[in-house]
């Protein structure tokens, strides 16, 4: 573990200007100053839906390929999905904790925690093993907003913590970006609201972010996606929606046992994925 004082020359520049002031920062993992140069804070709902997962699956790869550091808050839901995606793609990620740097996370999170510690960076303003308490999360959110150049909100409900982070982003004059969601979904009310009120820039693709942030110059050649076998009727069907086995069977007019077989095989190839009983395509949608 490493301690950074505000006076330290390595202290992230973004944090020097924000209020309330950040006096000390504890870190674990690989601290380098250039981590923060091109960074994007990704926040969102804890109760992420498949839609949120698909958005992360689609938006993050081009960003990570462009060398952008993904900053998030290590909460379950969107936060952890963003960390995982960044690590999966071999990118850089920073987790800003809402608890003491030494407080041990639950068994379900420990694997991700170790991985970030090993390959990325873990930051916290709180010392020792201070337990997470409600007041600490908004404080953590201000650090997340302060560290990066822009805050991207994926799925946020009304009055959620993600909107607090969004508020800090505006206060610190960072770019606020939001991905719109279904108007029927409770966890899209917040993001849609940000866009409607004009506070956030609407993001519908990774290139939107790269354009808005002017991050184009260093974009590396995009890694090739798995080939879209568009002949497959199921892949086509799942391209723009997530469906249960029954719904797929009904749409393609095949018996459910045949569809199950196909889905299993597609899943083993990594072309479709299943979450909470619904299938969605892993292919690049653009």
């Amino acid at each position: 573990m490493r301690v950074l004082e505000a006076a330290d020359k390595n202290f992230p520049a973004g944090l020097k200007k924000i209020t309330p002031k950040v006096k000390k920062l504890y870190s674990k993992g690989n601290f380098t100053k250039n981590l923060f140069i091109k960074s994007l804070t990704v926040v969102g709902a804890r109760k992420m839906t498949q839609y949120g997962q698909r958005v992360i699956d689609n938006l993050l790869p081009p960003l990570v390929d462009s060398g952008i550091t993904i900053i998030s808050g290590f909460m379950y839901g969107v936060d952890q999905a963003a960390h995982k995606k960044a690590l999966e793609l071999g990118g850089k990620t920073i987790a800003v904790l809402g608890w003491g740097i030494d407080w041990s996370v639950g068994a379900s999170d420990i694997k991700l925690y170790r991985e970030i510690e090993e390959k990325g960076l873990i930051l916290s303003e709180f010392e020792n093993d201070l337990k997470p308490q409600l007041w600490m999360f908004p404080r953590r959110n201000r650090i997340m907003a302060g560290l990066s150049r822009a805050v991207l909100v994926i799925e946020a409900a009304q009055n959620s913590g993600s909107l607090i982070t969004a508020g800090f982003a505006l206060k610190f004059r960072k770019k606020l970006l939001a991905v719109p969601g279904p108007v029927t979904s409770a966890v899209s009310q917040g993001t849609n609201g940000l866009i409607k009120s004009g506070k956030a820039v609407m993001i519908t693709s990774a290139s939107d972010i790269l354009n808005v942030m002017n991050w184009h110059e260093s974009v590396k050649k995009k890694k090739s996606q798995p080939v879209n076998d568009s002949k497959d009727i199921i892949i086509k069907l799942l391209a723009d929606q997530s469906l249960t086995v029954d719904e797929i069977a009904l749409s393609v007019g095949q018996p459910v046992d045949k569809v199950s077989v196909k889905l299993s095989l597609l899943q083993l190839k990594g072309w479709v994925e299943e979450k909470e009983g619904k299938y969605y395509s892993k292919m690049d949608l653009t």
Binding site: V245, D257, S260, V261, S264
Partner: peptide, 10 residues
């Protein structure tokens, strides 16, 4: 056969 295993995996 493969299809039996694939369905069972579901």
């Amino acid at each position: 056969k493969i299809e039996h295993l694939a369905e069972a995996l579901q």
